[in-house]
């Protein structure tokens, strides 16, 4: 199922691992003979807990998670402007739209790095070395080109009713860090980032 990965992570981090000692203490606190062995109770508890987590995962959708104010970048925007804009907003990527505001791609740090010729997942040191060796040429590549030239397309997008479990799976399978949420009319209504997901997990732990 789509939920297996987050469920497993949660089970390790939270109350799922109760011991038989815990159960016996709790049983003692309830007056009366309870005819179940601590081991059986533990089995039921763990199964029920997983189901509860899955239910929460399925009840939580993109609409609950997403950041609603999304910075959209026009595909005609020049790369230096786009870089400045992302830098100013402290974000690492954004959906790219056409003149009708329909999403056509996603541009992120990775696309810039690829364009600069340093590979898609360089370390800071690799970038530094690369800069020192190719000083002007590297940045020169970015001039006079537009976001539309380097963006990743087609964009991986999600619908508002997508569950948190499905989103997690998509993040892992497609190796992406952000998922624009697009409504039926093709307009971007929000964006879910890995940070949003992390926040929702910690919210779950609080609720459980």
């Amino acid at each position: 199922m789509a939920m297996t990965i987050p469920t497993k992570d949660l089970s390790r981090s939270s109350g799922l691992d109760i011991s038989e000692q815990d159960i016996i203490k709790a049983m003692k606190a309830i007056q009366g003979y309870i005819d179940i062995t601590p081991g059986d109770f533990r089995e039921i508890y763990q199964a029920a807990y997983s189901l509860a987590v899955q239910r929460l995962f399925n009840s939580f959708t993109a609409t609950d998670l997403m950041t609603r104010s999304v910075l959209l970048v026009d595909q005609e925007m020049e790369l230096d402007q786009a870089a400045a804009l992302l830098a100013k907003k402290h974000i690492s990527g954004a959906p790219v739209v056409d003149h009708q505001e329909k999403i056509v791609g996603i541009v992120s740090e990775k696309d810039f790095l690829k364009e600069m010729g340093v590979g898609t997942e360089p370390s800071i040191m690799q970038i530094a070395t690369h800069c020192l060796e190719n000083k002007s040429r590297m940045v020169g590549k970015l001039h006079s080109r537009t976001v539309g030239d380097i963006m990743t397309r087609p964009p991986v997008i999600g619908a508002p009713e997508m569950t948190i479990g499905a989103i997690s799976t998509l993040f892992i399978n497609r190796k992406i860090n952000r998922l624009p949420i697009v409504n039926k009319n093709g307009l971007t209504v929000g964006i879910v980032t890995r940070t949003d997901l992390a926040h929702s997990y910690s919210a779950f732990d609080g609720r459980m």
């Binding site: 038989e20 016996i24 049983m27 003692k28 007056q31 009366g32 003979y33 309870i34 005819d35 179940i36 062995t37 601590p38 081991g39 059986d40 533990r42």
Partner: peptide, 14 residues
Amino acid sequence: GSSQSPPSVNLVEV
């Protein structure tokens, strides 16, 4: 066996 006996009840219960 894989588990243990449930705890005994108190005297009021008895």
